[in-house]
Simulated scan of single mutants.
Amino acid sequence: MQNYDYLSRFDPDRFSPENSRSRPPMAFQPFGFSGKRSCVGYRFVFATATIFLVTLLKKFRIKIVNEEDVKPLYGLVTRPDKEIWITVNKR
């Protein structure tokens, strides 16, 4: 059985350039949304966020200020080309 005590100690030199060279390039695999290391709680988070958004939309009316034209800016993630101002009124 292997001893992993060195992993439980704080060692700031573990990530130094010298020590990083000896480590395989794919050694660090953080949690993600797919594959064998997917986060166990991501479905719960999406369900909770959906419920929160629906509750918010049931209680408030959200409108874009002055009915301004929103133009998409395409890239890795599509986003608006400028800030979107909204008004929030209680229903």
Results as ranks from 00 to 15, higher is better:
S22K: 15
D81P: 00
S16A: 08
T50Q: 04
G75D: 04
R37C: 09
Q2I: 11
Q2K: 14
D69F: 13
E83M: 03
R61C: 08
V54S: 11
I84M: 02
I86N: 02
E83P: 08
R37S: 09
T55M: 12
I64M: 10
E67K: 15
A47W: 03
L7I: 07
F15M: 05
F10I: 07
P30W: 05
M1C: 07
R91N: 13
L56K: 04
F31Y: 10
F44M: 12
Y6N: 11
N66C: 05
K58Y: 12
S38N: 15
S16V: 08
A49T: 12
F52Q: 11
L73M: 10
L57R: 10
F44V: 08
V65R: 12
N3Q: 05
K63I: 01
F33E: 07
R79A: 10
F28S: 09
W85N: 13
N66K: 12
P12G: 04
R9P: 00
K59H: 14
F52D: 08
K58V: 03
K71Q: 14
S8H: 04
N89G: 01
Y74F: 13
I86E: 01
R91T: 10
I62H: 04
Y6A: 13
T78Y: 03
F52A: 15
Y4Q: 05
I86T: 12
R14N: 03
D5K: 14
P72T: 07
F28G: 02
W85S: 14
L57H: 09
P80R: 09
K90Y: 10
I64Q: 08
F10S: 05
Y6F: 13
R9N: 02
R61D: 12
F10G: 01
E83R: 12
R21G: 00
A47M: 12
V54L: 14
L7C: 09
L76S: 07
R37D: 05
A49D: 06
S20P: 00
R37I: 11
Q2A: 14
I51F: 14
D69K: 15
V65M: 04
P25W: 01
V77T: 09
P17G: 05
R14S: 03
T87W: 02
N19P: 00
K58N: 14
S34W: 09
L73P: 00
K36A: 15
E67A: 15
Y74P: 00
V70M: 07
L76A: 11
N3C: 09
I64P: 01
F52E: 09
I84K: 01
P80A: 10
N89A: 09
L76P: 00
P80E: 08
R9Q: 07
P24V: 02
E68H: 11
V40I: 15
A47D: 04
W85Q: 14
R37P: 01
T48A: 13
S38W: 01
P25A: 06
Q2C: 11
S38M: 15
P80L: 05
R9I: 04
A49G: 03
Y6D: 13
I64A: 09
F31K: 03
K36H: 07
G41Y: 03
S34D: 10
E83I: 01
Q29M: 13
V45H: 06
Y42P: 00
P30L: 03
D81G: 06
N89V: 04
V77M: 04
E68D: 10
V54Q: 08
S16G: 10
T78C: 11
M26I: 02
P17L: 04
